[in-house]
Design a protein around this nucleic acid. Structure first.
Lengths: 377, 377
DNA sequence: CGCGCTAATGTAATCCATTACATGTGCGCG
DNA sequence: CGCGCACATGTAATGGATTACATTAGCGCG
């Protein structure tokens, strides 16, 4: 009866070469114990006698046994996989976020399945659902706004998920984020306190339903309203790239506006704006002050060093990891974790010149491109 | 007999709310077919009658059925998971590589399990093995050099894996890479052809067993030997950071050497060197020529725009993805895919001044830091 | 001496989808 | 008319680890 496994095809490999991966049964046979004991020796060693444990360990070693995780996952109904969808990895902000998240997950034996959506909600939904099908037990997403299909799916399935990089006072989703609107408001406050009244905003594209961008624009609207400044026509949208920043600033200037300060929805836009200013001979911060958003590593190395809003990507990654693990293991988790942003004031913000007039030299660029350079300090 | 499922706890949820995830049995019951037919309807629809298929589709819809992938993976013995270990994601080079790899994997229904090693071979080994335990069917690694434990493990288990960013003529592993040594050699050739004879190399840390860094240094040794130039004392090692680049250049200068050109093991080192030059009033490229490595996006935006070696990260990501999929599905795969690098000559390389003497002003920096700035172009 | 308890291990059910094999139906063709 | 084949579907084995429950041995204590 103990030999009912006799006819198994794998028997021939009993000796050593684990080419076709050994199973608990193989280990059990070699160690002269039952599969149950093998399993226990591996998972709850303290309930197995030392001598037996060593025999099993030797067998495991000899066979090069690796537990089949699919089988374990099937039985225990938990895969230890977390799906992560970020807009892009090319933007250091999200790369750092993921690195932090992944490290946190690893501490508890979880793994991250990562995909990128390229800022496209439809793509995000597709990927998220595929990740679930693939066995992800939870999802970490960026932003709170989702395609209806995904929203329904998440609601119906009850799959644990967290939203990051945002906050939304009106709902009680699981959120790990910060207040985009308030951060922009603080940036505007700073500029106003320096004496600025003609403030433009360079925003990321909001029509793509990027709720971080939308929240930042709303922050701008609120701030301008408080200080009775104009807003709508002082907003320009562009993609989150250096070129986008240039285009956005050009659009503002082309409207005949003469801003003394720019609030940007991202450091990339700020870099583009900075470049455009240089190209036009507009001095920063004397002629125009600029505030960025994200505090990329490069921001501190620009000339002038960029004043910007510091975003706690690393902290969010950690918190998101802890939060989603808690949800997946049914441990208690806080409903929200909201981080503070910090306005880092460097050298691109200053008082406006009194009665300033910006000379808009429509200087044609001669050099092949507009370049980042090092100051000679 | 057809009612042997009767006692199942899940029965009460038969109607709608799929809170506790439906199974094939649930779908089968609702559609009045067997589980086999459900499975077929989902996987090989053409063998199931249309009418039945629709009934099943309706049941799937109604129950919100999602196949349990652990079960499928167990049965079919394939998880569609690929483990990926890169040194870091903070370096755009690897972020882009991964993005490309992931996109390629997704096309064939594979998913990437991503971890970072922080350039530590031990960490790489740990992660790689954990990824396998977690169910990864293949591994994509950076570099060919591995900790012994991992090398043995891979050899013994026969798990499909590819090495990237390197090439090694002496073995026939599965490699998707490029010739680091040759790329550096070409950089040196370029400098020599411009008339340089005093060429220093700023290398990444080779003691960390970073075989990309090692290969690049070897390329430098070979090139200098060919042209009968000095080598060993003209090499400085430092971490792959801007600060590292500065330190390395300082070390070279502190040795009393007066290079007219620098070959750098990465763009980060080159950026640091550029910064240090500016800080010392050394003009680039008039006083010193600089060649970077990697061609990060920022390289073209520096001032002067950096001459550098273009590394085909995106192409490698794609090729690595296709290669590992081929290995995992036992399709034929080429043994190696070697890409060409390309020396992108921008503005940091020029002829050396005849009888040049570098004035080493040990200028104490006054400004708080050394900065990247935009040219006014 | 024997009851009852604990510790250690074995037996077999279980997780869920896939699939080899069996069954049944209907049709074409000799 | 009936054989044989194709098609559609059902039945039940299968994959590997975990774990509820059963069993056995050993020990303490009355």
């Amino acid at each position: 009866m103990t030999e009912h496994q006799r006819g198994r095809k794998r028997r021939s490999i009993k000796t050593n070469n684990a080419s076709s991966s050994a199973t608990v049964s193989d280990v059990a046979r070699l160690a002269h114990v039952s599969t149950a004991t093998v399993s226990r020796a591996l998972n709850t060693p303290d309930v197995v006698r030392l001598e037996v444990r060593e025999r099993i360990a030797a067998a495991v070693e000899k066979l090069g046994y690796i537990p089949n995780d699919s089988a374990r996952a099937l039985r225990q109904n938990q895969t230890r996989l977390i799906g992560v969808v970020v807009p892009t990895l090319s933007y250091a902000l999200y790369a750092d976020f993921f690195a932090s998240l992944q490290g946190t997950l690893a501490q508890d034996g979880y793994f991250a399945l990562l995909t990128t959506s390229d800022y496209d909600l439809h793509s995000e939904a597709e990927h998220a659902i595929k990740l679930i099908r693939q066995g992800a037990q939870g999802l970490v997403l960026v932003g709170r706004l989702r395609e209806k299909r995904l929203a329904n799916f998440l609601a119906a399935s009850g799959i644990p998920h967290v939203s990051t990089y945002v906050t939304d006072p009106t709902d009680n989703e699981n959120i790990i984020g910060f207040d985009n609107a308030r951060a922009i408001r603080e940036a505007v406050e700073h500029l106003v306190s320096l004496g600025h009244r003609r403030i433009a905003m360079l925003s990321g594209v909001t029509t793509k339903q990027n709720d971080r961008a939308i929240a930042r624009v709303n922050g701008f609207r609120i701030a301008t309203q408080i200080h009775q400044l104009p807003s709508e026509s002082w907003i320009a949208e562009a993609p989150y790239t250096i070129e986008g920043g240039r285009l956005a600033l050009r659009a503002i200037l082309a409207r005949g506006l003469e801003p003394t300060a720019l609030v940007c929805g991202s450091d990339m836009l700020a870099i583009g704006a900075l470049q455009e200013c240089k190209a036009r001979g507009i001095h920063v911060p004397r002629d125009i002050s600029i505030v960025g958003f994200d505090d990329l590593e490069i921001a501190a190395h620009l000339d002038p060093p960029l004043s910007t809003v510091e975003v706690p990507s690393v902290e969010m990654g950690k918190a998101a990891g802890e939060h989603i693990i808690a949800l997946c293991s049914r441990a208690p988790a806080p409903e929200k974790t909201i981080f503070e942003t910090r306005l880092v004031i460097r050298k691109t913000t200053a008082k406006p010149r009194s009665r300033e007039i910006i000379t808009q030299r429509a200087s044609r660029r001669r050099t092949p491109s507009d370049l980042l350079v090092f100051s000679s300090s």
